[in-house]
Nucleic acid binder design. Structure first.
Length: 247
DNA sequence: GAACCGATTTCCT
DNA sequence: GGAAATCGGTTCT
């Protein structure tokens, strides 16, 4: 028998690898709505994936796989359902779900998650992530640094639940995702970080648009409509929700 | 070995 | 609306 929490955080079935080990663009639509889960028990953090971006094969000149296999992107060439976690801009982590059969690099970047449970833990993790960042000035904990952190903590405390993980870097901050999660099997129910199935009754009004932050990529890759999000959901990233780039 | 740039967020003007 | 922060990979010297 299931124990149901008031906030819709039920224990669900693990996300089937079979939904991910084929075409990445199909997998993108299937992954929307799935649960991203960190930990277990009453402190578990649970969110609904509401925005993803597809990176498909080595031919995709926007993908990290475009230069072939490297130490960083090696997981992309592995089995579907693994987590590919990398650092961007020297400070933000990004979570990807590996797709396609082994040997063919594919991944879905998780750009937005709608929090369902464990929001207090997410806020704590957001502050913790800020605190873990190297101090700008001396690298030591100065009074000014502590004051800045306290201010940021207040801002995060005041954030709407829906904004806690509304961006790729924010997803990783809110779910404490970092280098050590690279290669984790997200389809293994025993993993501390994992995927669970979507609710059956969920409305799936999916919208698409071009991918974000890939200005270096030539056409036709630059304009491929390979960003998918659930229309109108507050958990999608600012770039997708803003009016300047709606696909 | 150095220069350049990125699948981003935050803070300041 | 714009720039800073910061590190790892690629591509030059």
């Amino acid at each position: 028998m299931h124990r149901r929490r008031a906030n819709n955080a039920v224990d669900r079935a693990p996300f089937s690898r079979a939904l991910l080990d084929g075409d990445t663009l199909e997998a993108a639509r299937l992954l929307l709505g799935a649960r991203l889960v960190r930990g277990s028990g009453f402190r578990a953090r649970v969110g609904r994936i509401v925005e993803v971006e597809a990176y498909v094969g080595q031919d995709d000149l926007a993908s990290h796989a475009r230069f072939g296999r490297t130490k960083r992107n090696a997981v992309m060439f592995g089995s579907a359902g693994l987590a590919y976690v990398y650092l961007v801009y020297g400070m933000h982590y990004c979570l990807n779900v590996v797709t396609e059969e082994p040997g063919r690099p594919g991944a879905l970047l998780v750009r937005g998650v709608e929090p369902l449970a464990g929001m207090d833990e997410m806020r704590r993790a957001r502050v913790e992530w800020l605190a873990a960042r190297p101090s700008r000035a001396t690298g030591r904990s100065t009074a000014a640094e502590r004051a800045r952190l306290e201010l940021a903590g207040g801002r995060i405390a005041a954030l709407a639940d829906a904004s806690l993980a509304s961006g790729p870097g924010l997803v990783c901050a809110a779910f404490s995702i970092g280098r050590s999660d690279d290669g984790t099997d997200l389809c293994d129910p025993g993993s501390d970080l994992r995927l669970e199935t979507a609710g059956e009754d969920e409305a799936r009004s999916i919208q698409t648009g071009s991918r974000v932050g890939i200005d270096y990529a030539p056409e036709p890759w630059l304009s491929k409509p390979w960003r998918y999000w659930i229309k109108g959901n507050a958990g999608v990233s600012g770039t997708s929700n803003s009016r300047r780039r709606a696909g």
